[in-house]
Each structure stands twice: as C-alpha cells, then as structure tokens.
Simulated scan of single mutants.
Amino acid sequence: MKYSRQRELVLAEVKSSREHPTADMVYAALKADNPSLSLGTVYRNLNLLAQMGQIHKIGMPEGSDRFDGRTDEHYHMLCQKCGRVYDVQLDTLSELDGQIQSQTGFLVHSHDLIVRGVCRACQQ
C-alpha cells in the first residue's frame, strides 16, 4: 500500500489515545496542526487501518464507532453516564471460541463484547 502521511498521523493518534476515540475526536485532535486534513480523510483512513488490522474498530450500537490502538484480544466497558470506553481483560472468556465450536460446530473468527454500566468515577 502506498505511504500516506495523513494515514500515519491518524494511526499515531489512535495508538497514543486511551480514549477509544471516534472519528470526530481524531479529527479534532489533528486538525489544528494539519489544516488541510478533512474529516472524510480521517474516516477513510480509520476504516482502512481497521481493515488492515492495525487498529480495532468498535461498533457502538448507540453511537459513533470508536477506535482502539490495541489489537490484542480484550474487551470493552462503556460508561453509560460519561460515555468513556475502558479496556478490560477477561481471561474467563479465553476459551469461548473453542467452546462454541465444540458445542455447535461454528468456527468463530472474531467476537466483540461491550459491557455497559457506570464507571467508578461516575458512581461517586
């Protein structure tokens, strides 16, 4: 694939963020230092990077997709009060794919889990 400076900027922004940003958040973070950057370019590059496996796209049923620089196996928690998305490691689900295949014959390629609730900060 041909090198793109804008793609590298988008990738670096997602990888450095712990916010699991939306496309709008990535655009806002990069626009001041990159005035020629368009929101459409950010969307295209985020989706391309996700297709290439360099970032993870988190489909949010009740809002804009979020993007994660972590591509290892992990899950997400969504605070329904502040809207933040947090990473969570759930070792108890590490055998889920094998259990599904052994019980049903269904070969799992991937899965996403979003746990909804209220984060510690919002509970106080």
Rank of each mutant, 00 (worst) to 15 (best):
42 V>Q: 01
111 H>R: 14
27 Y>V: 05
40 G>W: 07
117 G>N: 12
71 T>E: 15
32 A>M: 02
87 D>Q: 00
106 F>M: 12
45 N>E: 08
104 T>M: 05
75 Y>A: 06
5 R>K: 13
75 Y>Q: 15
44 R>L: 04
4 S>T: 03
93 L>H: 03
102 S>Q: 13
39 L>H: 12
19 E>A: 15
97 D>E: 14
9 L>W: 14
25 M>Q: 15
53 G>M: 06
28 A>W: 06
44 R>Y: 08
23 A>K: 12
39 L>A: 11
10 V>W: 04
30 L>V: 05
81 K>D: 15
119 C>I: 06
25 M>K: 10
101 Q>D: 05
5 R>G: 01
61 P>M: 09
45 N>I: 00
70 R>S: 13
114 I>A: 14
15 K>N: 01
99 Q>H: 09
11 L>T: 03
92 T>Q: 10
108 V>T: 12
22 T>V: 02
97 D>F: 05
110 S>C: 06
14 V>A: 10
116 R>C: 00
104 T>Y: 01
105 G>K: 04
95 E>N: 12
43 Y>F: 05
13 E>Y: 00
115 V>L: 12
74 H>D: 08
109 H>M: 04
32 A>I: 00
13 E>V: 10
58 I>Y: 15
108 V>K: 00
81 K>Q: 15
100 I>H: 03
56 H>K: 14
112 D>P: 01
47 N>A: 02
28 A>C: 02
78 L>T: 03
121 A>D: 15
77 M>E: 14
88 V>D: 04
9 L>D: 09
71 T>C: 14
13 E>T: 02
91 D>C: 02
101 Q>L: 13
10 V>L: 05
25 M>F: 07
12 A>E: 08
105 G>Y: 08
124 Q>V: 11
35 P>V: 06
50 A>R: 05
51 Q>L: 05
68 D>P: 01
5 R>D: 11
120 R>N: 08
123 Q>D: 10
78 L>I: 13
88 V>W: 03
